[in-house]
């Protein structure tokens, strides 16, 4: 913005992102912005930054419960979806299994679907792995398949040390579940001897270990995050 007093010409990218998030653009301009968001990561970042600035204003808007049948309308129209494995290429076998199940569900009648939803399999467990005021990872455990998915949140990687995940059952010592990744979700098969301990009484912890993980079978580095497994 070279001339601070003239704001009526074409805006720069940051102002264009601001106008889009504020909601002041006509529809043709909105669609043009959305095409750029889809193609230009740097421009998409500007939009996300403006959303972080402006959307807290929506706290001023009172919540209003929608009519009950809206959820039923949504559930009835959920399309059958092909599973997207390209976006998260690693360790997704667990999710793929679930998604195949859901495609089968979608093919069933609505009545059957509602029956299935009201009689769910054992609910997943989740743990938010926090430490030092930050959320480092979020873990989700599918007890039926003994599979855990651990997603990085605000974990910052270092070259020297790697994050290792530990399961701690009440009265037991930490048992390693394997190494985590700062960049992507990691899918972990819970070893057969630990499956009964991976329940809502257990705690997950993350320690920083040398590359390759702890050589001693116990955490050797600092524990940077932990969280209790809870039923979702």
């Amino acid at each position: 913005m070279s001339d601070i007093n003239d704001h009526s010409g074409p805006p720069n990218d940051d102002l264009l992102a601001a106008e889009y998030v504020l909601g002041v653009l006509a529809q043709a301009e909105r669609l043009a912005v959305e095409r750029r968001v889809a193609r230009e990561p740097a421009f998409a970042d500007l939009v996300v930054s403006w959303e972080a600035r402006l959307l807290p204003w929506a706290d001023d808007i009172a919540a209003v419960a929608p009519p009950r049948d809206v959820w039923e309308r949504i559930a009835a129209t959920l399309p059958v979806r092909t599973v997207r494995t390209a976006e998260k290429p690693n360790g997704m076998a667990f999710w793929r299994g679930w998604a195949i199940g859901s495609s089968a569900l979608a093919a069933a009648s609505l009545a059957a679907l509602l029956f299935v939803l009201s009689n769910p399999a054992p609910r997943p467990l989740t743990a938010a792995l926090d430490g030092g005021g930050h959320r480092h990872f979020v873990a989700t455990l599918d007890p039926q398949r003994a599979q855990m998915l651990v997603m990085p949140a605000a974990f910052a990687a270092t070259a020297e040390r790697v994050p290792e995940l530990w399961l701690i059952a009440p009265g037991d010592k930490p048992r390693s579940l394997g190494l985590l990744n700062a960049e992507r979700a990691v899918s972990i098969a819970i070893p057969a001897n630990l499956r009964t301990q991976a329940n809502a009484q257990a705690v997950l912890a993350v320690s920083l270990e040398p590359p390759g993980g702890s050589k001693t079978g116990a955490p050797t580095g600092p524990v940077i995050a932990q969280g209790k497994l809870t039923n979702l």
Binding site: V83, R84, W95, W98, M151
Partner: peptide, 14 residues
């Protein structure tokens, strides 16, 4: 809770 539920939604969990 929301972060986890959105991740599971991505996997096709109604």
């Amino acid at each position: 809770l929301l972060v986890t539920a959105i991740a599971q939604t991505a996997a096709g969990d109604r």
